[in-house]
Amino acid sequence: MRALNRRLKDLAAEGAEITVTNPGARHNTGVGIFHPCKINIEGSVGYYSASMIDGPEITIHGNAGWALGENMMSGKIVLTKDAGASVASTIRGGEVFVGGNVGARAGISMKGGALIVKGNSGFLTGFMMQKGRIIVCGDAGEAVGDSMYEGEIYVAGNVGSLGNDAVVEDASEDELLDVWATLERYGIAERPTFTKIVSGKKLYHMDSLERLEKAAI
């Protein structure tokens, strides 16, 4: 895998268009690529694939394991099938599009960028997210937006339940147009309505006093 990633880096520096065949669902495929380039991966990849990238456009024709695109700075990842848990974890920029479903903790601790899921998302979607946007065209599982600080989560289907301190807010027309335009870029022509979920910001501060603090008042 190290040899493959070194070769990918070299080719990316030349701005080449690269195809990887037979990835065999192995971990860490296409990690640490810092130049704009196009990479096609023909098959499923394992954990942490396309993670720590800055610039490339990576298309994966298959499934991904846990933490696809972790810590991406910029660029684009398109996955045609399903992703495991923690997809787009801690990304700071760029876009991750998943053509199928995603597992638990999608977009955990996102710090920017966008995660777009054509199918359903699992438990704890947007857990502790700090910035950025998550769009789920199908259903989202339980505890959506638990402990999120900032950012927005849009769910077109059912919301299993809201997480701790997550609240529903009306989406403005401009926001909806922007979400629809994003979907259109990925070939989704439907214009569904969305439940917009944001932080209630109650967890920013302690809402109860400690015993000694009470005594001091």
């Binding site: 098959g43 499923s44 298959g62 499934n63 099938k81 399903d82 495991g84 479903n101 597992g103 638990a104 699992g122 438990f123 599982g141 339980e142």
Partner: peptide, 9 residues
């Protein structure tokens, strides 16, 4: 290439 399922919580 066949479909992969992931059981949830």
């Amino acid at each position: 290439e066949i479909a992969r399922q992931e059981p949830q919580q």
